[in-house]
């Protein structure tokens, strides 16, 4: 485990990862000069559903699939573009992710491992594609679980969108989950909770509260993420390599007894503050 890597002195030398578009992010985690995009913008696979609802479609439907190498080993990266439709998952872009993972699985089963990396930046299901969005998210989840038996599946959530909805489950299914301080991870977005349960339940405008619940630092401090990084391209690329070099144990989502025991330590009727929860769910081992 890496812990909070880097130091403030290197601030001037940093190159922001968060500011990069999905294509540049994918390029950044692959070995230099090995990026090869699949189903790129010129392949013309757009959402068939958005224009029917008067919404302009992006040529790659908001997901970049790239093959290349990571530390010299075959890899595939799926990067979600958070600036397009909030990184929402529709039929085409979700099928690109699921399909890429399914092909990686096929190669693994044939004895040619492929290192899969998910660069997530997503609000979850694209509401204009509703049931199909949910269906492809189930397919992405199925593919992660099957593939994880052969090779670590590594996810990065960096910000600024964060990772929500069914894709937060996908992130939690991964072998290794890397976050930045600017990242948020939760099943339900703050706005959705406020709409569903009222402002007394959660004030979506209270940024400090939202970050204290779902921010990368909190998720890392309570053992729900494996690494907490600064917004730095080199650090993120290095952490992805570490995740493959030192294969992790079972994914969190497989460790039912361990997490049930953790939950039993919490008084649900009077839940602790996010800060106090860090003491109850202190990181175990590492960091």
């Amino acid at each position: 485990m890496s812990g909070v890597a880097g130091s403030r002195q290197r601030f001037l030398g940093r190159r922001s990862y968060i500011e990069l578009l999905a294509r540049e992010r994918a390029r950044a985690v692959l070995d230099a000069g090995t990026f090869r995009e699949l189903l790129g913008p010129f392949d013309g696979l757009k959402s068939p559903w958005l224009p029917l609802q008067g919404v302009v479609a992006q040529a790659d439907d908001g997901v970049v699939i790239a093959r290349g190498l990571i530390d010299g080993k075959a890899a595939v990266v799926a990067a979600v573009e958070g600036r397009y439709q909030g990184g929402s998952i529709g039929e085409v872009c979700g099928s690109k992710i699921a399909g890429a993972l399914e092909l990686a699985l096929r190669d693994c089963e044939r004895g040619s491992p492929v290192r899969p990396v998910l660069l997530l930046e997503t609000g979850g299901v694209r509401l204009q594609e509703a049931n199909l969005g949910l269906a492809v998210i189930a397919e992405i989840q199925a593919a992660i679980i099957a593939l994880r038996r052969h090779v670590p599946v590594v996810a990065v959530v960096a910000g600024i969108v964060g990772c929500y909805g069914g894709m937060s489950l996908a992130a939690a299914l991964c072998s290794t989950l890397i976050m930045t301080r600017q990242a948020r991870l939760g099943m339900n977005g703050p706005e959705v909770i406020e709409q569903e349960a009222g402002i007394a339940e959660l004030d979506a405008g209270d940024r400090a509260l939202i970050w204290s619940l779902m921010g990368g630092e909190q998720r890392y401090a309570t053992g729900l993420a494996d690494a907490l990084l600064e917004d730095d391209v080199d650090e993120i690329a290095a952490e992805v390599r570490r995740a493959f070099a030192n294969p992790p144990g079972p994914a969190r989502s497989e460790q039912v007894e361990r997490f049930a025991e953790r939950l039993a330590r919490v008084d649900v009727a009077l839940p602790p503050s996010p800060r106090a929860l860090r003491d109850v769910w202190r990181r175990e081992g590492g960091a």
Partner: peptide, 9 residues
């Protein structure tokens, strides 16, 4: 050929 930009706000 060239591709630039994103269909964002």
């Amino acid at each position: 050929r060239a591709h630039v930009g994103v269909v964002g706000s």
